[in-house]
Computed example of a mutant assay.
Amino acid sequence: MSELIVNKLRAAGCVFAEDEAKLLISAARTAAELEEMVNRRIAGLPLEHILGWAEFCGLRIAVDAGVFVPRQRTEFLVRQAIALARSGAVVVDLCSGSGALGAVLAANFERIELHAVDIDPDAVRCALKNVSMAGGHVYVGDLYEPLPATLRNSVDILVANAPYVPTESIRLLPPEARIYEGPVALNGGKDGLDIIRRVADEAALWLVPGGHLLVETSERQVPLTVEIFSRNGLTPRVATDQELEATIVIGTRT
């Protein structure tokens, strides 16, 4: 049975067919359910949407259908945020999607005050499963708009895995992302930096002096991202991980 499933997945273009087969087999409760799950995967649905979860930084993060799947490269952003945070920190996860970033940060500290925001109601419902378990608060709305005003000048760590794919490049994404994840989680506008601009524009109003904003971006977008941060009172620093092909910009409120 397992070899047959592996062959089917491999024929459908699944690079990690053996690993995926093991996960599907362990998740299925009946042979009929397994067949349905395999067929959905062959049809192109993301494995994480079929399983209902994604592994991220060692945690099992709930991921509902249509919600952005946390990428392995984003683990680099989280590790950098953990290095800058401390117990008792106030953390805001903007464009939170499933709430994966905030959930991991909360798991690494005895106590943090966590707030997560997303504009997509489906993502917020998913984030509630992950962030509420960590004692965090989840809001639906546009960036900073739904956050309590009491958080102004109080945030120590602001993470924003904002969409940064240029609009014209979305058609080049793998079908798993292009078809099955919400466009609002991918589309960064003409140059890919529209949302990052808006995040940086207000960051200094919410961060404590010395607080940090961390965003993921592409290597090509780094010079403009650095300029955006500098223009908004943030001292920028670029960090990269070649193995994960990850690039982030960290801005510190001066």
Score class of each variant (00 low, 15 high):
Asp142Glu: 12
Leu224Cys: 06
Gly141Ser: 04
Leu128Val: 03
Cys57Trp: 12
Asp142Pro: 01
Val208Lys: 15
Ala62Leu: 00
Thr74Asn: 01
Phe16Gln: 15
Ser169Phe: 13
Pro209Ala: 08
Glu245Val: 06
His137Tyr: 14
Ala177Asn: 01
Leu59Ser: 07
Ala203Asn: 01
Arg40Asn: 13
Gly182Ile: 12
Met133Lys: 14
Ala203Pro: 00
Ile82His: 06
Arg60His: 02
Gly188Cys: 11
Leu45Val: 13
Ala12Gln: 10
Asp156Thr: 01
Tyr144Val: 03
Gln242Arg: 14
Arg237Tyr: 00
Ser154Pro: 02
Ala123His: 03
Thr150Gly: 11
Asn161Asp: 14
Met37Thr: 07
Ala134Glu: 11
Glu176His: 05
Val138Gln: 05
Arg29Asp: 15
Leu205Gln: 08
His115Met: 07
Ala103Val: 09
Val140Cys: 15
Ile25Met: 02
Gly188Trp: 13
Val69Gln: 03
Pro183Gln: 05
Val249Leu: 05
Leu45Asn: 06
Ala160Ser: 10
Glu33Leu: 06
Tyr164Gly: 08
His115Val: 03
Ala27Arg: 15
Ala204Leu: 09
Arg178Gly: 03
Glu227Trp: 13
Gln80Ser: 08
Gly135Thr: 01
Leu193Ser: 11
Phe68Leu: 14
Arg111Phe: 13
Trp206Arg: 00
Leu34Ala: 03
Cys95Trp: 12
Asn39Trp: 07
Lys8Asn: 07
Leu173Ile: 09
Phe76Thr: 01
Leu105Lys: 04
Glu20Ala: 02
Ala149Trp: 00
Leu47Phe: 13
Ala239Ser: 09
Pro146Glu: 04
Glu75Asn: 04
Ala85Met: 03
Ala162His: 09
Gly58Tyr: 11
Glu3Ser: 12
Gly102Thr: 12
Asn232Pro: 08
Ala31Thr: 15
Arg71Ile: 07
Pro166Asn: 09
Leu172Gly: 11
Cys95Leu: 10
Ala100Trp: 13
Leu224Ser: 12
Val131Ala: 03
Ala162Asp: 03
Val6Asn: 05
His115Cys: 05
Val117Leu: 12
Arg10Gly: 03
Ala62Asp: 08
Thr217Met: 12
Gly189Val: 15
Leu193Met: 08
Ala28Asp: 10
Ser26Ala: 14
Ala106Ile: 10
Asn7Arg: 15
Tyr144Asp: 02
Arg71Phe: 08
Val91Ala: 03
Glu18Leu: 05
Val38Phe: 07
Leu207Trp: 02
Ala28His: 09
Ala12Val: 06
Asp122Phe: 00
Gly88Phe: 06
Val138Phe: 02
Cys14Arg: 13
Gly188Glu: 09
Glu55Ser: 08
Ile50Phe: 14
Ala27Asn: 12
Ile170Val: 13
Ala106Glu: 05
Glu3Cys: 02
Ile179Cys: 09
Arg231Gln: 12
Asn232Trp: 09
Val226Arg: 10
Thr252Tyr: 01
Arg220Cys: 00
Ile50Glu: 13
Arg86Asn: 04
His49Cys: 09
Gly141Trp: 09
Phe76Leu: 04
Asp120Cys: 12
Ile50Asp: 11
Arg171Gln: 15
Gln72Ser: 07
Val226Glu: 05
Asp201Val: 00
Leu173Gly: 05
Ile228Ser: 12
Asp201Met: 04
